Simulated scan of single mutants.
Amino acid sequence: MVGLKIKPTTLVVWIDEEKEVVVVMADFDTFAADGTRICSIADALDLVGDRWSLLVVREIGFDVRRFDQIRTRTGAPRQMLAARLRKLEEVGVVQRRKYQDRPERYEYVLTGAGRALLPVLAELRQWGQRHAPSRPAGRTNSVEGGDAPAS
Rank of each mutant, 00 (worst) to 15 (best):
residue 108 Y to Q: 04
residue 146 G to W: 03
residue 57 V to E: 06
residue 107 E to I: 10
residue 116 A to L: 05
residue 58 R to H: 07
residue 89 E to F: 01
residue 66 R to K: 13
residue 56 V to D: 09
residue 119 P to Q: 04
residue 10 T to Q: 10
residue 17 E to G: 08
residue 12 V to Y: 03
residue 1 M to G: 09
residue 104 E to H: 03
residue 127 W to Y: 09
residue 127 W to E: 07
residue 149 P to W: 09
residue 25 M to V: 10
residue 10 T to D: 10
residue 34 D to R: 02
residue 4 L to A: 07
residue 125 R to K: 13
residue 40 S to K: 12
residue 90 E to Y: 02
residue 75 G to K: 03
residue 84 R to P: 04
residue 9 T to F: 00
residue 84 R to C: 05
residue 91 V to T: 02
residue 87 K to W: 01
residue 4 L to K: 03
residue 46 D to V: 12
residue 49 G to D: 02
residue 108 Y to F: 08
residue 19 K to Q: 11
residue 116 A to I: 00
residue 131 H to C: 09
residue 31 F to E: 15
residue 141 N to Q: 14
residue 126 Q to P: 05
residue 19 K to D: 14
residue 11 L to K: 03
residue 73 R to W: 08
residue 71 R to M: 09
residue 29 D to A: 06
residue 40 S to G: 07
residue 132 A to G: 08
residue 121 L to R: 03
residue 125 R to C: 11
residue 27 D to P: 15
residue 60 I to T: 02
residue 9 T to W: 07
residue 120 V to N: 04
residue 102 R to H: 14
residue 98 K to Y: 05
residue 111 T to P: 00
residue 67 F to L: 10
residue 40 S to F: 02
residue 76 A to Y: 03
residue 63 D to W: 06
residue 130 R to F: 02
residue 145 G to P: 08
residue 55 L to E: 11
residue 14 W to M: 15
residue 29 D to P: 06
residue 44 A to N: 09
residue 67 F to N: 06
residue 78 R to K: 15
residue 125 R to I: 12
residue 127 W to L: 08
residue 131 H to L: 13
